[in-house]
Design a protein around this nucleic acid. Structure first.
Length: 273
DNA sequence: ATACCTGTTTCCCG
DNA sequence: CCGGGAAACAGGTA
């Protein structure tokens, strides 16, 4: 389920172990998640301390030194979790970072996710601003819209260079809030309104999905206590996958079809082409 | 059994 | 060279 907020929540699971030395690294040699990063290379982390971490869009970066970072992307089915020190390896656990007290686990049954090592100071130096950043400005939005006049709105929202972290459900949510059919071409879109709703959904997703799991309640981080939260009932999210789902705004039946190569739900009444 | 999938990359087409 | 669409990746779930 990883989009921006789920990614942030995943990062926080491991972030609870900032300052902890990695005693041992376990990898699955043949796992596709390693792509061009040979799994044994991950053992370079043994003996090093997880210093800090951050996320950008759907990517996470765990830092172990001034020029050593582990990047993780969850793909479609990847999950980060924390298990006890004697965690029993599960079928699709592809990477486990052991500390003296816990096991930091990357599990991904479909293996669309990936991990990679970076040996430079800032591997993300040239990344675009995120919706949460002040640099994600109206003028930037206007340029993106003008650059892709024929592109469907939903395709622009899913473009990770344009809207880092926005995934399928967030894109539908944004279109729904805008009152626009996901297939409308970008030409003529109001950049200020589009930016506003991208930010509302991105910030709201972080609030409802990530923050609710990681508030002061210390046990939020304890192994096995992580419970996925979802946005509230007045978001499209709660209705879009149900057979016979209805628009939380007007109550009319939602429609579903493939738009911009992804399954898309929208309200035919509230979202005109 | 069959279809479906909160993502990305690659390939092919115009 | 660009943009856009389809296929591929893989395995669990409805």
């Amino acid at each position: 389920m990883p989009e921006l907020a789920e990614v942030e929540l995943a990062r926080r699971q491991w972030a609870a172990f900032h300052g902890e030395p990695i005693t041992r690294v376990t990898t699955h040699l043949k796992a596709r998640i390693y792509r061009d990063c040979p799994a044994p290379a991950l053992r370079v982390l043994e003996g090093l301390t997880l210093l800090r971490s951050r996320a950008h869009g759907k990517r996470m970066l765990f830092t172990f030194g001034p020029e050593l970072h582990l990047e993780v992307h969850l793909g479609m089915s990847g999950k980060l979790s924390v298990g006890p020190q004697d965690h029993k390896e599960q079928k699709h656990d592809h990477l486990i970072l052991h500390t003296s007290e816990a096991a930091l686990i990357f599990n991904d049954y479909r293996m669309f996710g990936r991990v990679m090592l970076h040996d430079c100071a800032n591997p993300w130096a040239d990344f675009p601003p995120q919706p949460q950043d002040s640099k994600f400005s109206v003028s930037r939005m206007r340029k993106l819209i003008e650059k892709h006049p024929k592109k469907p709105l939903k395709a622009l929202l899913l473009d990770q260079n344009a809207c880092p972290g926005v995934g399928n459900w967030m894109a539908d949510e944004i279109c729904w809030r805008l009152g626009l059919h996901p297939g409308v071409p970008c030409l003529g879109l109001n950049p200020a309104l589009v930016r506003k709703e991208i930010r509302f959904v991105s910030l709201g997703a972080i609030k409802h999905v990530a923050d609710k799991n990681t508030t002061a309640s210390v046990d939020g981080f304890a192994p096995g206590t992580y419970v996925a939260q979802v946005p509230p009932k007045n978001w499209l999210f709660q209705h879009r996958w149900k057979k016979g789902g209805h628009c939380p705004k007007c109550g009319d039946a939602l429609e579903r079809d493939t738009i911009a190569t992804r399954t898309t739900a929208w309200c035919p009444t509230c979202q005109q082409a």
